[in-house]
């Protein structure tokens, strides 16, 4: 019988502290009655109130939401198709195109899309952001869907065909319901990735449109103000809700995607 040594839980606990302390500090300072992020002065909701009247921030939040909704919807459809195709057929090009944007540093996708849109003569803005977000979210959805399919008993689809279902019917009645948790988890993941994306948006946004991360970047870069703490805390709350929904649906899909 091995003794459970204490150092492993201790080391693990310290790493969790390292992971969470910074985020908790941001949340704490969002309620701090001081313009400086250095010392606890007193409780206030002032920064959340300021946020409600911050026109540029609200505009950016609206943009982010719209972009994330459209990008996650389209990338879920295309990503599910790609995941299914990669699982079912022996393909060479598609898996490469699906995995490459995930594998290489984001900045490369960002600058190449910038070149592409400018050379096409497109005005950078909402449309270019959405098109770019779809391109990188698609792969994540595809991976989640494919891993869900790979975990499925292949003979289920065959059984459906064997019992009289056409290929389409077998997909709709058997395959799709079974991979649905994966599809939904993929959609939530795409939504979160899109609403959080900074690097690719940074290059494809131009001056036409701003998103929440871009807005936060500008604020952080110029002068740190407590409104950033407030919007950060709200965003964390939003992702927390999304992640909990997703983990209820498909814990394994989340794990494979991250």
């Amino acid at each position: 019988m091995r003794k459970n040594s204490l150092w492993l839980p201790l080391a693990g606990f310290l790493v969790y502290v390292f992971l969470y302390a910074p985020l908790l500090i941001v949340v704490a300072f969002s309620f701090n009655d001081s313009r400086l992020n250095s010392q606890w002065v007193g409780f206030t909701l002032e920064w959340y109130r300021v946020l409600l009247h911050h026109e540029a921030m609200l505009q950016a939040a609206g943009n982010s939401l719209l972009i994330a909704l459209v990008a996650s919807a389209v990338s879920t459809v295309l990503g599910t198709m790609a995941g299914f195709a990669m699982y079912r057929f022996r393909l060479r090009v598609l898996p490469l195109l699906v995995l490459a944007p995930i594998a290489i540093p984001e900045i490369l996708t960002g600058v190449s899309l910038l070149l592409f849109f400018v050379l096409l003569g497109m005005t950078l803005g909402m449309v270019s952001i959405i098109l770019s977000h779809i391109a990188f979210c698609l792969g994540f959805v595809a991976i989640v869907v494919r891993s869900r399919l790979a975990g499925m008993d292949e003979s289920l689809t065959e059984a459906a065909r064997d019992l009289g279902a056409t290929p389409w019917c077998a997909f709709r009645r058997v395959t799709l319901p079974l991979i649905m948790p994966g599809v939904v988890a993929g959609a939530l993941m795409a939504f979160t990735l899109s609403i959080d994306d900074f690097v690719i948006t940074f290059f494809t946004a131009g001056v036409g449109a701003s998103t929440l991360p871009l807005q936060i970047y500008t604020m952080v870069k110029t002068s740190v103000t407590p409104e950033v703490n407030a919007i950060s805390s709200l965003l964390m709350l939003l992702t927390l809700v999304l992640i909990l929904v997703a983990s209820k649906l498909s814990p394994s899909a989340l794990r494979s995607g991250a």
Partner: peptide, 16 residues
């Protein structure tokens, strides 16, 4: 969980 919170926020936390 922290991985899913916004990238910039996580960097910003260290600025504080």
């Amino acid at each position: 969980l922290p991985f899913w919170s916004n990238f910039l926020i996580r960097v910003y936390a260290w600025m504080i």
